[in-house]
Structure formats: structure tokens, C-alpha cells
Design a protein around this nucleic acid. Structure first.
Lengths: 108, 108
DNA sequence: TGAACGCTTGGCTATTCGACCAAACATCAA
DNA sequence: TTGATGTTTGGTCGAATAGCCAAGCGTTCA
């Protein structure tokens, strides 16, 4: 797999609301599948598959302890980038509101 | 659109090799569609659609100058995160090589 | 005006994704 | 061993994605 495909795989893995929710939660600490399932609110098998995607992209790692499997965020810099994305989206949203107000003013 | 969906949209937009190539190029400076098409090496309509995806995620912005349309990276923090992903992927790759060597040693 | 150029959009097909259910697998406890 | 619990895997189906070609703008320049 080429450099760009490996990178794309990481972004693709992060490109789903449930998986982002999971990553956010794992940024707080290690969690078992059952906890993540409760958080996401989908079928366990669905959550398990989301975790497989995150794992094969190298974003999380798993570890069995007894009858539970625990997942841990291994690509920790993700949370930092999340902040950047959020800031950007917010500033964009306010820019759009500003545009809208200009348009609204022009329409009067 | 909820917070998590907006964020997911950003990651999803970045989750394609051609679009990553485009973002890398735009990190160097503004480019017209024709330049990006040459870079990616796909049909121009395909590239145009990739640019639409990036734009609607708020990652790039476009601007017509004469008969050309120029695209600019607006979410500039993306490049920084790219570095983090690359470092992580590299360290993971070497970890896997190390694992492999352990296994190989065990097999002797 | 009309031809040429640069880009976008619509339409089509093949592939991938995401959700659920059912079945399999792993561990623990009786 | 058997049953209970926690997790993964296989199968199916509808939705979304990516690619190309063709057709449709918008702009420039004769």
C-alpha cells in the first residue's frame, strides 16, 4: 500500500460520526466494547465493525482482558487535529452567517 | 447538520488518495483545475468532483479568474495533521517489522 | 456572433459501505 | 461440560461513492 493510500485509510476511518464518537471517548481513556456500544447506541456487531476499521487504520489498538476486549486510542494526535477542525468549522459557520446578514441587508 | 456529522464530512473528504494529493499540492499554493488535473492524472470531470467534495467540506475555496477556476487550501491546519499521521504510520510500520523479526527469530 | 477553451453537471455502471440479524468463537462460572 | 456473557464474523440488502462520457455553462478572442 502506497503512502497516500495509507494516509487516506486513516482519514476514511475517521470519516463516520459513530467512529468519531468512539475516538472522542477513547481520548478520555481505555474502554471495552460494551461501553462503546452503549455510547454509540447501535447494534454490537456494528460497533465491533467500526472498531475493526479504526484498528486496521492504526488509530486504535485492542487488548483482551478476561472476557472483555478493551480498546485504546493509539494515534493520540488525532484529538489535537479535531480541535483544529472544530475551530475552522466554527469560523466558517460565523462567516456564512455574516454573508447571510449582508444578503439580508441588501434585500431590504 | 450536527457537530459530529460536520467533522465526519471533513475526514471523509480527506479519505481519498487523489484528494490527499490535491490537498498536498494546495498546501504549496493556489492552483487551477487544469494544474490539479495534470497532477492527479484522471479525467477532468473526476477531478472537478473531488474539488466539489473538498469545497463542501470547507477544506478549500474556489475563485474564478478569467476563464480559469483557482482553488486554495482554506483549512491550513490539515498539513500539520498530515505530518502527525505520517509519523504515526511510520512508527507503526517499524513496530510491525520488529514484531515480524521476533516471529522470525522464534521460528528458527 | 461564433468557435475555442476551461470547468461543472447529469447520467450511467461497478464497487464499497453501513446497518442489522444470525451464527460462530472465546472466556468464565457453576 | 454446559450455560451465560462478551465479542467477532458471515450474509444480505439498500445507500453512497468513484469513475468515465456526454452535454451544458461561462469566458475569451477572433
Amino acid at each position: 500500500m502506497g503512502m497516500n493510500e495509507a494516509r487516506a485509510k486513516v482519514f476514511k476511518a475517521l470519516g463516520h460520526p459513530s467512529r468519531l464518537m468512539i475516538v472522542d471517548e477513547l481520548a478520555q481513556g481505555t474502554r471495552c466494547v460494551c461501553e462503546l456500544t452503549a455510547l454509540v447506541g447501535a447494534d454490537i456487531s456494528t460497533v465491533s465493525k467500526h472498531l475493526t476499521v479504526l484498528k486496521s487504520a492504526g488509530i486504535v489498538r485492542d487488548e483482551r482482558r478476561g472476557s472483555n476486549v478493551y480498546y485504546t486510542l493509539s494515534m493520540t494526535c488525532v484529538s489535537g487535529f479535531m480541535g483544529c477542525v472544530d475551530r475552522h468549522l466554527r469560523s466558517q459557520a460565523t462567516a456564512q452567517v455574516a454573508d447571510f446578514e449582508v444578503i439580508a441587508a441588501e434585500m431590504k
